[in-house]
Amino acid sequence: MLETALKIRSSINKNTSLIVNERIDIALLTNSAGIHLPGNSFKLKDVIKVFPGKLIGKSVHSVSEAVKAENDGADYLLFGPVFRTPAKIKYGKPQGLKKLKKVCDNVNIPVYAVGGINPMRIKKCTAAGAYGIAGIREFMITGNIRKTISIYRKELGEL
């Protein structure tokens, strides 16, 4: 994992933040911007002590989790799945835009919408208060990540 992270770190430009999934050690050794805590990961209070000055993101699935994460010191949140997505079907129905809005209304840190995002849905997410969007499959299935990203950026109003 360290090798992969180092490779990514050296190939991205300075404007892109590299976030490592939960591995504080790998994030520090690669001088990455921060870590992301998925469900079942470390508690924020335990991480903050050993990871000062770096970004800590957290996945949340409800308003109460979101508020708690903000109070515990998270720098940003990932909320989802907003829409239906194959990877998360096993967890039941998607959360929907209304819940996304409720989460965004109740916290002051950036919220990224995740789960089943496509270009047509981006404006709906930002209208609900999302700061940005996140995805895995959505970026991979088109076969042209560069093009996909520029379409997404356009929808986010950044191009």
Binding site: E22, R23, D25, I26, L29, F42, D46, V47, V50
Partner: peptide, 27 residues
């Protein structure tokens, strides 16, 4: 090493495929 840091353990044991000793020492 991350869990050793979070739990303030006295150290880590690294197998042959884990983080290199030098990298762990840096942290």
């Amino acid at each position: 090493v991350d869990i050793a840091m979070v739990s303030d353990a006295d150290g880590v044991h690294l197998g042959r495929t884990d983080l290199p000793i030098r990298e762990a020492r840096k942290l």
